[in-house]
Design a protein around this nucleic acid. Structure first.
Lengths: 248, 248
DNA sequence: GAAATTCTTGCAATATTTTGCAATTAAATT
DNA sequence: AATTTAATTGCAAAATATTGCAAGAATTTC
């Protein structure tokens, strides 16, 4: 067995159990404890886990969670997600589009919350899986590989039969005059259907995106009920939105 | 044998087994270990695999993408998956249920194959995402958290409008007399619908499962066209199936 | 604070890699 | 077609890496 494989096994054990005992791993891998110790030392130096007396422990949840591997502006998105999650209440039906900000929202939904989540996004559905009190309903269809969401007539049809309490609409661009815009036609269609399928539309967006626009229009600002950014409500960057939209 | 051919063989081995040992490849290719070492070095530089002491491993290996790496009897399941994948041809429409054996099949579908995959399973859809030539269609619905597949009326309805060329039906239990059985009622319903939605039903199953049964019946053996196990066709354990089912 | 466990260190056996070299093959040039 | 040049391949010796072991040091546990 290659050293690299051992490392993967160890990391996997850490990921699953949050800790490993030297002796257990040695048993699993059928190598001496010395070898495992050296492996753990190496992984510790690479900052993949924390070496402790007797074994190793996880660095903390987020490090191994596949989901946050490489989210751009993760800090900001987490702040946005915290605000977004504060809107949620037991019994609600919510609709989540795709995108990494929404993924962060999905991750931060508290496990005790009893809500129903509809989503056409595969990563978001996966992220919700371990939360016991959430009912997940995937809106199926042909998967667009870039966005990892279902697109086309089938999801749009499914959405037409739905009225959610809140839609968290992940966006690529939002602009005070042009409204919400998107790069891909087929995704525009799904997002339009999502807006129609919801009582309240919430746009979580990092501040970099709040003055950009793209080729296709999803909706005007009037269709958006609430804009969540990582900024403070009083931030001058948000001035242009204050008239037309509620901010958080 | 051309260097390029060797490279293809090496990459293929890595793709299938996630790793290769220098000595094994040298044996397979009938060249010296030095040559293989140089080949691997080259592929490493091209970023096609990761060179490690003693051999090489797949780049994706440590990307714990979305896939549960803790697959029980992984070796056997890989062997089954290899056989299963050999049935696939360009242009086909296939239907994949859930389960780790099917996940392994999804992983091993060669990237050049142009097929359409329908699945109600989130992990399998995720697994297929990086393959550029595969059209993925997720059968949506309420997600059963244990099996991570969509269940209920909605997926069953969607399946009723479909006729796939092959259905890979992951099973928990198959028995020479009792047929295919399952523990959960709602999953039974989906699997029944999958069988109806396919021209050919293939059951990939490790040998441990081929004499077990569970509470609810999915179908009799007559509904199954092909049984794939990790065993050789002539293995005595398969004797009871030889009459009624084609084996692979 | 004593007992038990775990760690560190140095060492030896084994396995793998590096390096230089020579023989062979393939490709380019005249 | 012959010659030169470059690339490929296998071999072998030296260098390096891996692994398990054992004795003493450090840490944890009760």
């Amino acid at each position: 067995m290659l050293k690299e494989e051992r490392h993967q096994v160890i990391l996997n054990e850490v990921r699953i159990h949050n800790k490993v005992l030297l002796a257990d791993i040695a048993e699993i891998l059928k190598v001496s404890q010395d070898t495992v110790r050296r492996d753990i030392k190496e992984l510790h130096d690479k900052n993949k886990l924390k070496r402790v007396h007797g074994g190793a422990i996880s660095l903390g949840f987020n490090h191994y969670n596949y989901v946050n591997r490489e989210i751009y502006s993760l800090e900001k998105k987490s702040r946005i997600a915290e605000k977004a999650v504060s809107l949620l209440k037991d019994g609600q039906v919510i609709l989540l589009s795709g995108g990494t900000t929404n993924l962060e929202i999905a991750r931060l939904i508290p496990p005790y919350l009893k809500i129903t989540c509809f989503t056409p996004s595969l990563p978001i559905a996966m992220q919700l899986l371990p939360k016991p009190n959430i009912e997940i309903i995937v809106i199926g269809g042909k998967i667009n590989k870039d966005s990892q969401i279902a697109v086309g007539g089938s999801p749009i049809g499914a959405l037409s039969e739905l009225k959610a309490d809140i839609c968290f609409l992940g966006v690529n661009s939002i602009h005070p005059i042009e409204g919400v815009t998107e790069l891909y036609w087929e995704i525009v269609q799904v997002k339009k259907a999502m807006i129609k399928a919801s009582k309240k539309v919430v746009v979580p967006s990092i501040s970099e995106k709040i003055n950009s626009e793209q080729r296709y229009k999803i909706c005007g600002l009037d269709a958006v009920d609430l804009l969540i950014t990582e900024l403070d409500e009083s931030d001058p960057q948000l001035e242009a939105y204050k008239q037309s939209i509620e901010l958080l």
